[in-house]
Amino acid sequence: MLTALRERLARRAEEDGLLDIAYRTIDSPLGPLLLAATPAGLVRVAFALEDFDAVLSSLAATLSPRVLEAPRRLDAAAAELEEYFTGTRRSFDLRLDRSLSSGFRQRVLEHLPRIAYGSTLSYREVAELVGNPRAVRAVGTACATNPLPVVVPCHRVLRSDGRLGGYLGGLAAKTTLLELEADDRTAG
């Protein structure tokens, strides 16, 4: 009964234009993930270690206080992530709301999906590709603040010496993603 009431509330809020940010959680090999979307598209993917309540509070303060658990808006994102984690999807075809990034960070994040599935580049190589070869640290910052990890594959960016560097979801999550893509590439 409570589930039906929530669904009716979410549907009504969407119909009346009162739902600015819809969210849901999904299970993944990385643990639970929070997905959030505006009418423009997927705006945030968050790891449990980020504290979902804190992420939702930040979205409410930054974008709009009209936030509601409304899973239907995120059905496509959830399905594509499931396909990615099971090895049947190598890139995402989702509408993205990039309003949480701007300037150089946004340029870096727009480039990351061009790194081929199962491949990696160094922070230096990404800096060169976006036209600012001396901005290696800025590339690292852009990756560290990527609001759409996994979908915008910052996990494919490594240190010049081949070490992992940092990752918003933790190094275990970055390792898992790189192994998933490497295993799928060698199997296929």
Rank of each mutant, 00 (worst) to 15 (best):
A135F: 06
D161A: 09
E181I: 09
S64I: 04
L56H: 08
D75V: 13
A48P: 14
E181A: 14
S91C: 07
R98F: 14
E110P: 06
G169P: 04
T62W: 06
L9N: 07
E80Y: 02
R8M: 12
S57Y: 05
R95C: 10
R90F: 12
L164T: 07
L35V: 06
T175R: 13
Y117A: 12
V157H: 04
V157I: 10
L180N: 10
L109K: 03
L59R: 00
A46F: 04
A135R: 00
S119V: 05
R44T: 07
Y117W: 07
N146E: 02
S102P: 03
N132V: 13
R6M: 01
P39W: 09
L33I: 03
A144M: 09
P149C: 09
E14R: 11
S57Q: 08
V126T: 00
P149E: 01
P147N: 08
E69G: 08
R107T: 13
N146R: 06
F92K: 02
V139R: 06
R44I: 06
G169S: 01
E15A: 15
V136A: 00
E82S: 15
E80D: 12
R105C: 15
S101D: 05
P39K: 10
R134E: 11
V130K: 01
A77Q: 04
A61F: 08
S28E: 08
N132Y: 14
A70P: 09
G169I: 00
V108M: 08
T141N: 10
